[in-house]
């Protein structure tokens, strides 16, 4: 049932390449739709960010199944920092006079810059630090891309455009970039970190990823509600509905896969 170069201990029911395509295409379409759709435009980048978070959570799952242990949150922390640098560099570079007229490629540049920095750091981690994880480069590259799209998606949802100066005034100057850094770290690393164990299951982990993604979208929506009004309200409502559905399905899956579900009493006697 394993498709593609997924981590050895972690079998996967959903192909990692499909998740990669959904993450990149969904994230970018969401960001690019924003300026063209009146009023409710900011909903799309927020949804794109949720897709990117799901992709990132799957990539974390693949790399962490090589026994990262406490490194699960650490790699997400590191990669989100990479993504913020890459994203701001990608958005900022198109404001150079040389690149005048290329402002539309800014989100793609942000994604590419983040992935290049991610790849460089993975190569350093493997060649110089000496980490022995076979798929480290590919996964760090993927998580960097997912982190970049999630940061950019929520930032565009908050500012309503992907113009560098708008992002600087609405997201970076008031400090929301700090919130996105830590909130997306949590959303991307939590699903695998929360579900790991010998009986971890990809579908259940990804259900958790959908729920953390929508929860982050809801928080972004609450902020956008105060800043922009109606579009923020729509983001909050869609985020909440998505979260309720995904959280319910995660709880149901957990109930179904648990050894037993009890509301009282002691554990069963087992042979040691």
């Amino acid at each position: 049932m394993s498709h593609g170069p997924s981590g050895e201990p972690a079998g996967s029911a959903i192909n990692s390449v499909h998740l990669l395509i959904v993450g990149i295409v969904g994230g970018l379409i969401g960001i690019y739709l924003t300026p063209f759709v009146p009023v409710v435009g900011p909903i799309f980048p927020a949804l794109g960010a949720v897709l990117a978070i799901i992709w990132g959570a799957d990539a974390i799952r693949r790399v962490a199944s090589y026994g990262l242990g406490t490194g699960v949150p650490s790699i997400a922390y590191m990669v989100l920092a990479i993504a913020i640098i890459g994203t701001l560099a990608g958005l900022g570079i198109v404001s150079l006079p040389v690149l005048k007229g290329f402002s539309m490629i800014a989100p793609v540049l942000a994604l590419i810059f983040s992935m290049i920095i991610g790849l460089l750091i993975a190569v350093i981690a493997k060649k110089i630090v000496g980490m022995k994880i076979p798929i480290l480069e590919r996964c760090t590259l993927e998580i960097s891309g997912a982190a970049s799209l999630s940061i950019l998606g929520f930032s565009v949802a908050l500012s309503g455009s992907f113009v560098y100066t708008d992002i600087l005034t609405t997201v970076v100057a008031p400090g929301f970039i700090g919130l996105f850094f830590i909130m997306n770290t949590m959303a991307i690393q939590h699903p695998y970190n929360a579900c790991l164990g010998p009986n971890e299951d990809q579908v259940r982990t990804l259900k958790c990823a959908v729920s953390t993604g929508f929860l982050s979208m809801t928080i972004t929506g609450i902020l956008a509600m105060v800043i922009m009004g109606l579009p923020g309200f729509a983001i909050t409502i869609i985020g909440l509905i998505g979260w309720i559905i995904s959280f319910r399905s995660f709880v149901k899956a957990s109930y179904a896969d648990a050894a037993s579900v009890k509301w009282a009493g002691l554990w069963p006697k087992v042979e040691e």
């Binding site: 949590m186 939590h190 699903p191 970190n193 929360a194 579900c195 790991l196 164990g197 010998p198 009986n199 971890e200 259940r204 982990t205 958790c208 729920s211 953390t212 929860l215 928080i219 959280f247 995660f250 709880v251 957990s254 109930y255 896969d257 648990a258 050894a259 037993s260 579900v261 009890k262 509301w263 009282a264 554990w267 069963p268 087992v270």
Partner: peptide, 28 residues
């Protein structure tokens, strides 16, 4: 609220992740 949600998902996820050892998921 967010903290509580993360608590629920991590407790359920980790306990179910070890179901082969017969660890029950105690909801109480």
């Amino acid at each position: 609220f967010v903290h509580s949600i993360y608590t629920i998902t991590s407790h359920m996820g980790r306990i179910v992740g070890q179901s082969q050892f017969e660890q029950p998921l105690f909801m109480d």
